[in-house]
Amino acid sequence: MNPFAKLTDTLIVRAEGAGYVVNLLLRTFVVVPHLPRRWRFLLDNAFNAGVRALPVTMIVAAFAGAILAMQTGIELRRFGNSNVLGTITALSMCREMGPFITAVILAATVGSAIAAELGTMKVSDEIDALEVMSIDPVDYLVLPRVVAMAMMCPTLTVLSNLIGIYGGSVIAEQNLGVSPDLYWSSAIESLTSSGTLLPKEAYVGLFKALLFGVAIATVSCAAGLRARGGALGVGLAVQVAVRNSVILIIVLGFIVTWFFYFLD
């Protein structure tokens, strides 16, 4: 096959996949009114997601905050500006790092599990069985998962932010000689100074987390529902789910920051 034809084929397959995800998201929005009937699955899924991701998220968030503090602290010390370390760590945790690491970990733990679960259902005819019973798989399977992730990703992000800022404070005190008082007061001030109920940094971060949660769940459900060809196909679906989630997290993160800070 000539390389050009191969490239077009790949592009067509990618476009098809993207179209499927967008279509799935729209169909999920349409069935949102059915949510009250799915509350049991919704809570199950939310609880599972929380339990799966919580420990890893906490550990990674603590180290991410510490790295952030070190990284900026080294330069700040050179300019004798260590007193703004709390501000910088708090803002970058809330705006970028918190949502980002939470989402990546959710993609790796919960997204992969969703793809494996729905993929297994697909290849063992369970999705067809639902359709034969006139139960819409989007309503029954996708909706509770998407909403659960839309709830859990921001929730875990808040925790990540707090722990990340705390991780930064340890470095600030131990290695950079910034007093905890100064660190925490500048961190808190930076997050409350705008006078609004929620400062922009925090709500941009939470908005991102919400988008990430929806994106991870939708992409992972789509990968699972499109799985075929037995166990091998399920493995492939998991791989696709995690890969696409991470790509979307980075691209969406960029777009949101750009939208809120550079577009006015």
Partner: peptide
Amino acid sequence: LMALRKRMGYLFQNGALINW
């Protein structure tokens, strides 16, 4: 299709039960 499927039962190979 829904009306048709209401009148039909389908035993899938291996049962295709929902695991949870």
